[in-house]
């Protein structure tokens, strides 16, 4: 009871929560489309062909959508791994936060770079 410092966890928990929504609602659809529908021939191969993907990434709404899906699921995953480590008795503490949230941050910046800067 002596310490009682305000935790900065709400930031990561919010990203984790938002990522959870994305992971549970969008990811299954993506897995179905890319992992099942396409290989099983339920979708025409051109549906996710280079030209269409290029157009998706090239449009601002498409790029934003991809950015949200990729970055938030990353934050979600990294938060879960960090806490699961603690659950199995590995208390990584600040180092864990730096490594895992650092990875999510780098992933987010890289995604933003490729989607919004490097595309032409």
């Amino acid at each position: 009871m002596k310490r009682m410092k305000r935790s900065n966890e709400p930031i990561f928990w919010s990203l984790f929560g938002a990522g959870g929504v994305v992971a549970s609602m969008v990811a299954p659809a993506l897995v179905f489309i890319t992992g099942l529908a396409l290989p099983l021939g339920l979708l025409a191969p051109e549906a996710l062909g280079y030209e269409r993907m290029r157009a998706l990434v090239g449009s601002l709404p498409g790029a934003l959508l991809l950015f949200v899906v990729i970055s938030l699921t990353l934050w979600h995953t990294m938060h879960r791994i960090n806490h699961s480590l603690h659950d199995v008795g590995i208390n990584a503490g600040l180092a864990g936060k730096v490594v895992f949230y650092g990875l999510a941050f780098v992933g987010t910046v890289a995604t933003a770079y490729f989607l919004f800067v490097a595309r032409r």
Binding site: M1, R3, M4, K5, R6, S7, E9, W13
Partner: peptide
């Protein structure tokens, strides 16, 4: 303050 701390819900 207790809720918000690392020793609280977090």
């Amino acid at each position: 303050p207790l809720v918000n701390s690392e020793e609280g819900v977090w």
